[in-house]
């Protein structure tokens, strides 16, 4: 297990390094990095300061290491718009986006797994077929438009939920989150549902395929031969087996959820990292864009790492055999 963790961490570092190299090359490919990373109305003194900070007088490979070491210290320059260090601006939005992504992942499992299991247990029933047809159509709903329709239905027509924004933040044991207030959750519900629906179709397919594979296994027959009730067969024997692929896929998709928060946050005017990125692109606030990219990629990498370890924890065959499976 220990060797496995070491190897996975090394892989993660490689990915981070590669992305950093790409971002670095992109900044230098677009044009003069000093102009790119300094405000448009910068004075000569400011431009010189930026050039010094970036090590413009050194060879390119040294500049890359300066970029890396600045990045490692969280220094991506100051936001033109907010006048604060770019990373701070990005990180201040992180809790909002994480809340959204986690809530969405939760909803995707709660909605997708039962539907997928049903479709897998009764593949030829009308219900099973409609679920599968629905999941194809679900793949086809563009997230931004679906969000608008959710607003139209639940906020404009029915007036059940707020149309956008982030709700009040509550505090429990020093932990601040909008999960802790009713207002916070009511603001989270629509955007999280929007992001969840984006993944529900996928979860349905994974859960269905895993269900179909599992119910054909000898151990399910043996479990039935023991005289177990269907609730236990489905709720324990089946569910525990299909959760492994579901959690794996969902974990791998958590990164894409955070990225697609760009769309949902813009639709729901939700002040997270994604909306920040879109605003920053509109305002050419490049240090924030770079900080967002590096922070997001770091998050992807960490999430993938956690998923692999969680996968190992869920599947005793991997957990106890050193993860060579």
């Amino acid at each position: 297990m220990f060797a496995y963790i070491i190897r996975r961490v090394a892989q993660s570092v490689f990915v981070l390094f590669s992305i950093a190299l790409l971002v670095f090359l992109a900044i230098y490919a677009i044009g003069d990095p000093v102009i790119t990373l300094a405000p448009q109305d910068a004075t000569t003194a400011e431009l010189e300061a930026t050039a010094r900070r970036l090590g413009m007088d050194r060879p390119l490979y040294q500049q890359f290491f300066i970029f890396l070491s600045n990045a490692a210290q969280g220094d991506f320059g100051r936001s033109f718009v907010y006048g604060e260090p770019a990373l701070n601006v990005v990180l201040s939005r992180l809790p909002a986006t994480l809340e959204l992504a986690l809530f969405a992942a939760f909803l995707a499992v709660v909605i997708g797994v039962p539907l997928g299991m049903y479709a897998g247990l009764k593949p030829d029933s009308a219900g099973g077929k409609s679920i599968m047809l629905g999941s194809i159509l679900g793949f086809s709903l563009p997230s931004f438009w679906q969000g608008l329709m959710l607003i139209l239905l639940f906020a404009v027509v029915l007036r059940w939920l707020p149309a956008g924004g982030r709700g009040d933040v509550g505090s429990i044991w020093g932990l601040q989150s909008s999960f802790f207030t009713f207002d916070g959750i009511s603001h989270l519900l629509l955007p999280a549902l929007n992001m969840a629906l984006f993944k529900v179709a996928l979860i349905i397919r994974v859960a269905r395929a895993a269900t179909r594979e599992t119910i054909g296994q000898d151990f399910m027959l043996f479990a039935r031969a023991k005289g177990l009730p269907p609730t236990r067969l489905v709720g324990v024997h089946l569910l525990k087996n299909i959760l492994i692929p579901v959690v794996t896929v969902l974990g791998l998709e958590l990164g894409s959820l955070i990225a697609f928060a760009i769309v949902t946050e813009s639709v729901f005017a939700y002040p997270g990292m994604g909306k920040l990125l879109v605003d920053s692109i509109g305002q050419l606030d490049r240090p924030v864009i770079v900080a967002y990219l590096m922070a997001t990629v770091l998050m992807f990498v960490v999430i993938n790492l956690i998923v692999d370890l969680l996968y190992a924890a869920l599947d005793p065959r991997i957990r106890l055999s050193g993860g060579e499976a």
Partner: peptide, 18 residues
Amino acid sequence: GRRLAMIFQDPTTTLNPV
């Protein structure tokens, strides 16, 4: 399982692995 029980051929697949 109570009055009528059954066991199967392949012992590596009859027990739920998880």
